[in-house]
Simulated scan of single mutants.
Amino acid sequence: MHLRSTYRGRFAPTPSGPLHLGSLVAALGSFLDARASQGTWLVRIEDIDPPRCPAGAADTILHQLEAFGLLWDGNVTWQHTRDDAYEKALEQLKAAGLAYPCSCSRKQWRDYPTYPGWCRNGVCEPEKPVAWRLRSDLGERPIHWEDRLFGPQTFDPVELGDVVLKRKDGLWAYQLAMVVDDAAQGITDVVRGIDLLDNTPWQRQLQRALGCPEPRYLHLPLIVTPEGQKLSKQNFAPPLADDAVTIRRQLFWALQALDQAPPLELAQATPAEQLAWGIEHWSVSRMAATAQRAAP
């Protein structure tokens, strides 16, 4: 067990539907990593995209976390209340010449692997609504960091394109909101699925540009279907169980998916007992650095 008394982690779901087994593995990994470090574990609801967030979904997620024993510290943070903080950060990026307005539609650059930066030196169609993008060519590059499971990582953000910070419809995009909120909450460790690993270079650029601390990163394997598809709300992954027997079974399976090798008798234990075992025995070094785990 490694002890970092200043450890602050978080689980930050988008409330587009109930949690599923893939979500459970991400939440459990984040929770165990924080608790094994005697740290703080926060929950943030990333509800900045109302069209994707049906009524009641956030409450369902919070109830699911409670049912599985994943109890958080402090109050839940809701991104829809954070507009002023995001606007302040965007203005800082504009002042530094690192954000620019863009009128281009995805259809216009569909033949390119990433957005080609056509509006970097002036909006192509000033009469149209604009999004705000990050000047990935002017930020720190290349980006290097050490992932706690997958090891040394190097990306040039220019190869990933100029990510959107604020959409044409006025809604905030994920990258800026996440960086601003992680800094505001003092997050020291980000534990999440490996599907977000290639978002890290943009986030590191934003952290440097905004003067935010840079957390450690631990990217976890994804849970996939027999066809190799990531379990997700978009492809109708079944929600987590709500009966006591299946909750125990699913939590035990999530410990196995994280390569923690729980003893078989633990499968019948309560969530509190399973989590206590998981905290005591949590080991990142036990995990195989492979990108996928098959769903049961």
Rank of each mutant, 00 (worst) to 15 (best):
P101L: 13
P101R: 11
S103M: 07
K107M: 03
Q108R: 15
Q108Y: 13
W109L: 07
P113D: 08
Y115H: 06
Y115P: 00
R120W: 14
N121S: 10
G122A: 10
E125W: 06
P126V: 07
K128L: 15
K128F: 11
K128Q: 14
A131C: 11
A131N: 06
A131L: 06
S136A: 15
D137W: 15
R141F: 08
R141P: 00
W145Y: 15
W145C: 00
E146V: 05
F150E: 02
G151H: 12
T154S: 14
F155A: 09
D156F: 12
L160S: 08
L160F: 15
L160H: 11
G161C: 03
G161L: 06
V164W: 14
L165A: 03
K168T: 05
G170T: 06
G170Q: 05
A173S: 06
Y174W: 08
Y174F: 14
L176D: 01
M178N: 10
D181W: 05
D181E: 13
D182V: 03
A183W: 14
A184H: 09
A184S: 10
Q185I: 02
G186V: 07
I187F: 08
T188W: 15
T188M: 11
V190R: 06
V191C: 07
R192M: 07
L196G: 04
L196S: 04
L197Q: 09
D198R: 13
T200N: 03
T200L: 02
T200G: 00
W202R: 07
R204E: 11
Q205C: 06
R208M: 09
P213E: 08
P215T: 06
P215I: 12
R216K: 04
R216Q: 08
Y217R: 11
Y217M: 10
H219W: 08
P221D: 01
P221C: 03
I223T: 11
V224T: 12
T225S: 15
K230F: 04
K230H: 05
K233A: 02
F236L: 10
F236P: 00
A237R: 08
A237C: 08
P239R: 08
D242K: 02
D243N: 12
